[in-house]
Computed example of a mutant assay.
Amino acid sequence: MLNLTNVQIVYDNTIEAVREASLSVGKGSIVALLGSNGAGKSTTLKGICGVLYPEDGEIKGGQIIFEGRPLAGLPPDEIVRTGAVMVPEGRRLFDQLTVEENLVMGGYTRSRADAKRQIDMVYSLFPRLVNKRTTVSGYLSGGEQQMVAIGRALMSAPKLLMLDEPTLGLAPQITEEIFEIVARLCRQDGMGILLVEQNAQMALAIADYGYIMENGRVVLDGPADKMLRNEDVREFYLGFGEGGSRKNMRDVKHYKRRKRWLS
């Protein structure tokens, strides 16, 4: 479905944010993209979706192919029409509009009849939004805003849904609910999911495959269940040291990565 091959992304013609990154997402699969802050994860999603230009970012090399079609150079609305949609970090709702108005904005590429069907589908996924449909979205809780953001992305009936830190700042119960819905979209509807997430444990628990980025490069990848057992991943991203003891995440972040990761 989605294939990135040796992608290079540069900001201001000077800062190389992504270096020869390669990854793939298949139909009906969940792929977790993990890494510390500044590793290049969000930049990778922005490159796929064609929204690098507000920050003077540019794809300088490599290929981004979605269902056999190159995406590099396409405007964002055309990329949405191909079936690839992103839920950005921070939700980015139209906070002066109501819940339903936000959803309608997400369905601008669809016919009125299709948009109506998609709204009904969104409300079935997020029933707590039904009673909030006329509420101005800026007054919603963080969890409800995230549900609207995901629902808005689903309005275009995507084949590939990309989520950038969907559980950031959310309560554990809401986090579990959102992950359950993400898994349902994949398993029942055959949607491809590319998930950028700081909560590596939960992301790998629902994912089929995982990639880890460091300094703009993919340094490790493999089946999610295997990565959960990988000593490096457990130590650096899940916080477990030798013998299963819990390590301080501050120590983990500054711990020198094994050289074989970057060889």
Score class of each variant (00 low, 15 high):
P88K: 08
L93Y: 10
Q198V: 12
G244W: 05
G210T: 01
G68K: 13
Y11L: 00
P166W: 02
L45Y: 12
I181H: 02
G61W: 01
A39D: 05
S245P: 01
R19Q: 06
D221L: 01
K256A: 14
Y108H: 14
R112F: 10
V18Q: 02
Q188E: 15
T44W: 02
F236T: 06
P166M: 10
D225N: 15
A171I: 09
D208I: 08
N230D: 15
G143C: 01
L195C: 09
I59C: 07
G35W: 03
R117C: 09
A113K: 15
V85G: 12
F240E: 14
H254T: 10
R246E: 14
R110E: 13
A84W: 12
L103I: 11
M86T: 13
L194F: 14
N230A: 02
K259A: 14
A39C: 07
E100F: 13
A171K: 06
A183N: 14
G244T: 00
K60P: 00
Q118V: 05
E55C: 08
A207V: 09
K132E: 08
L163E: 09
N248W: 05
G35S: 04
G210W: 07
I30W: 05
A157D: 15
H254N: 12
E58L: 01
D77K: 13
T98H: 13
V99N: 04
R112P: 10
P127Y: 05
G239M: 04
S22L: 06
T44K: 09
T14E: 02
Q96S: 15
I212A: 01
V196P: 06
